[in-house]
């Protein structure tokens, strides 16, 4: 009988990091073990102050084929960037 433990994705927030960042994955039988293993494998050199573990099977990812449909529409909306609006030199703090 195969007894392969489920796969988990590990996210770490570093000391000065603003958000959790994907660090890698590991196998564990449950959440508690995933947390312990994540600590042992991904924070041996003070890489983090906070860990998230998520079952890989629960991650919903965008498909490579949907890249254009999802991301191209942002290309022609340059007005979403502040640089789209030139400001006169005399106007300060804006």
């Amino acid at each position: 009988m195969t007894s392969e433990w489920p796969l988990w994705e590990v996210f770490i927030r570093s000391q000065h990091g603003l958000a959790h960042k994907h660090a890698g994955s590991l196998h564990a039988s449950d959440a508690e073990m995933a947390m312990k293993n994540a600590r042992d494998v991904y924070t041996r050199r003070n890489e983090g102050v906070s860990i998230w573990v998520v079952k890989s099977a629960d991650v919903v990812a965008s498909a490579p084929g949907d890249r254009e449909a999802l991301f191209d529409p942002a290309n022609d909306k340059v007005y979403r960037h502040p640089t789209f609006f030139p400001m006169p030199d005399e106007v300060k703090h804006i």
Binding site: T2, E4, L7, G24, S25, L26, H27, D40, V41, R44
Partner: peptide, 26 residues
């Protein structure tokens, strides 16, 4: 011991990378 523990970690990072190609760890 710290060095050997790192090597176990290296093995794990690499097995994980291989698993993304659709093979199982076992």
């Amino acid at each position: 011991m710290a060095k050997i523990q790192d090597e176990a970690g290296h093995g794990l990072y690499l097995y994980s990378a291989a698993e993304t190609l659709g093979v199982s760890r076992d």
